[in-house]
């Protein structure tokens, strides 16, 4: 089980690197979120910001799963069995968001 000193240092470095990346991304996210103050109701700008936020969140999720949870170092087959089922959620997300929009319209129908 015990790692060589060199490997141990390497893993430690990877973790601290990931920590810094997570912190920076979070700071940037929060900084940009403050822009909502002025642009909260402008849909085009909001959309762009939302896309950015989602991307940034996915980056953070990647570092947590890959480095902290160590998935990057596991066998590929295992990573695949864990990540593939997440695909089902994407269709659930798309379907339910489309439904949400359509419910909104059906409620708006009578005002």
């Amino acid at each position: 089980m015990i790692l060589s000193d060199q490997e141990y240092q390497m893993h430690k470095a990877a973790v601290w690197r990931a920590t810094i990346i997570l912190s920076v991304v979070t700071t940037v996210e929060v900084g940009i979120a403050l822009l909502y103050d002025t642009f909260f109701h402008e849909s085009g700008f909001r959309m762009a910001l939302a896309v950015f936020m989602i991307m940034a969140t996915l980056v953070k999720a990647y570092y947590i799963v890959a480095v902290f949870m160590h998935l990057k170092y596991e066998r590929k087959a295992m990573a695949i069995t864990i990540l593939m089922p997440i695909m089902f959620l994407i269709w659930l997300l798309i379907a339910l968001l489309m439904e949400g929009v359509s419910w909104h319209q059906m409620i708006e129908f009578y005002g």
Binding site: F88, W91, A95, M98, E99, V101, S102, M106
Partner: peptide, 21 residues
């Protein structure tokens, strides 16, 4: 089996386009 659940809901008032998928 994970992609088809809403075929139980075709007449529930769901969006027809989503229904078609």
């Amino acid at each position: 089996s994970f992609l088809v659940w809403a075929h139980h809901m075709f007449v529930s008032g769901m969006n027809p386009f989503v229904g078609s998928i």
